[in-house]
Amino acid sequence: MEKKKNKKVFLKVVIIGDSGVGKTSLIHRYTSTRFLQDFKPTIGAEFSNKEVVINGKTVVAQIWDTAGQERYQSLGISFYRGADCCGIVFDRSDHSSFENLDTWKNAFLKHGAPKEEGTFPFLVIGNKSDLDDGSLVKERDAQQWCADNGNLEYIETSAKDNTSVEEAFTKLIEKGMEREKVNLVELPDRMSQKNKTVNLQRDVAKDVNRKPQKKKCC
């Protein structure tokens, strides 16, 4: 048991949401503790790692940053598979990004196809709280949306001011860990477990290759 406690937990965290809401900035703030003024749009997907200790366990968060433009969704969906938790980000100063939360959540459930659709750990993140000029999406409205959509948890952040960024990711990781409680396994097993979910096509290809061999035997 003691040995098991020391083992690292690998968690796949996926961050989605409209273009320009600050997904990359949030991740960058969390993983490198800096705010990038000169960020670029994410094309395809980007990946980063962060090792943290949460509740006495060492966790390696594998964070996938995805492109916000709708067109890129067909590429993004290959990253949804095998996710342990998902952060949906909107820009509090851009109401249409709030209205699109629905679309993002549904796309994730459809393409990520997690086993527990109703209870999958999402965290809704309202970013750019620093831009407060009275016209931001109100906390009450965001909380209401979360309540109506499966009692999701909501947090308000500012990647620029570094407000609640660490808290948001910690929450997300804790949620992911809760879900994974039953199967905290070490790296190699965990990786191979992921492979199975990601490489369906490859496995099919292998099976196809196997068939002729069987025929030869007969």
Binding site: G44, L75, S78
Partner: peptide, 12 residues
Amino acid sequence: ISFLEIPPFAVS
């Protein structure tokens, strides 16, 4: 690398 049918990092 063949386990990846489409490598997303090469898109850009």
